[in-house]
Design a protein around this nucleic acid. Structure first.
Length: 331
DNA sequence: ATTTAGACCTGTCAGC
DNA sequence: TGCTGACAGGTCTAAA
């Protein structure tokens, strides 16, 4: 699922394309996606509200709405937003009971290369969209859980194969309380080597586990935690409170570096993640340890190892990321 | 007090 | 081909 870079990239894309649009209607195809309030209230409250801003807090996407409300969206493992151009809509008519096979329908456009009309079943064929800055991949439209209609004729789909994602509508006055548990934004001014030191000194859990804790730092997930630890040359099983000054300095810089690279590459796609035009991010091509088990380390050619830490698969180089003990013996 | 299974879900891929 | 098991960007709850 999306981690900080994927959510940030989506927030930037939406900010550039839907600010000022008004929500005219919404359809909910999987009720548990709406976490608060209940469906009836959610649908009533959302109608007629203007989108005034799009922000991110940790892995939450926040859509500011007129009347001092905001949508709080957590995509969990497989949630995505897809923005359909004017005139395009989700088509549930042919296979009502199988959201996995729903598609989008719209004005007929022609595939740039093949010059063939695009049909609802064409799957991975890309179509030239009338007002989108990129093409839209039809394959990304499956598993639609919530469909927002905008007054200007565009449609914003929330797709989520695994159904873990949640969308909530809250008054803005509730925001501070709702996010009080979360640690500092890693790309913001409050995340410093000192604040990281304070967060780590009290914890003896493995550093990998600690980095996944949203109270320590907001927005890190399994991909970027592994990548940051490799970049900082720290073994994932090192107890958090045993990192020395230099290691914390490195880790702080590495967290920022891998997240910024992820954003620059449009996020990491190895399965579900897509941007709002249905395109994959390219950051998977820049992974150094994640999902590279048994492949050579890009620094020392040693095969990357995979272990389980806190029930999450964890990838590291046994030479570049020595345990404390090994480091001690080598010296 | 912390670890750690289990739940929530569907899809994909490797191996038989 | 079809079945089975492992695994996938997350987080919460309950049992050990």
């Amino acid at each position: 699922m999306p981690e900080l870079p994927e959510v940030e990239y989506t927030a930037r894309q939406l900010r550039a394309s839907v600010i000022g649009a008004t929500m005219s209607d919404a359809q909910v195809f999987w009720e548990r996606t709406i976490g608060y309030p209940d469906i009836a209230q959610f649908l009533t409250q959302i109608k007629g509200r203007r989108i005034e801003g799009v922000r991110r807090r940790g892995k939450f996407l926040l859509v500011d709405l007129s009347g001092e409300y905001f949508l709080s969206i957590h995509r969990r493992m497989s949630g995505n937003f897809l923005l359909l151009p004017m005139g395009w809509q989700i088509d549930t008519s042919t296979r009502e009971n199988d959201p996995a096979r729903w598609s989008v329908k719209g004005p007929i456009f022609y595939n740039e290369q093949a010059e063939l009309p695009v049909s609802a079943d064409s799957g991975k064929v890309s179509v030239m969209a009338p007002i989108a800055p990129a093409t839209i991949s039809l394959s990304a439209t499956t598993h639609c859980r919530v469909c927002f209609s905008l007054h200007d004729g565009r449609t914003l789909l929330f797709t989520d194969p695994r159904k873990f994602g949640r969308i909530e509508l809250w008054a803005k006055s509730q925001e501070d309380e709702a996010f009080a548990f979360m640690g500092p934004e890693p790309l913001g001014p409050l995340f410093t080597p000192i604040s990281l030191t304070e967060a780590l000194t009290r914890r003896k859990t493995p550093i990998k586990t600690t980095l996944l804790d949203q109270e320590v730092v907001a927005g890190l997930g399994n991909i970027y935690a592994d990548e940051a630890l490799f970049d900082a040359q720290i073994h994932p099983l090192r107890p958090a409170n045993t990192l020395n000054h230099d290691e914390i300095q490195r880790l702080h810089a590495s967290i920022i570096a891998v997240l910024q690279l992820g954003i620059e590459h449009g996020g990491t796609s190895f399965n579900d993640y897509r941007d709002i035009w249905g395109e994959e991010g390219s950051n998977f091509d820049h992974m150094r340890v994640y999902q590279r088990t048994n492949r050579p380390c890009l620094t020392c050619a040693t095969p990357i190892e995979r272990i389980t830490v806190a029930q999450r698969s964890t990838h590291y180089c046994p030479i570049c990321q020595p345990t404390h003990q090994k480091q001690f013996i080598q010296v």
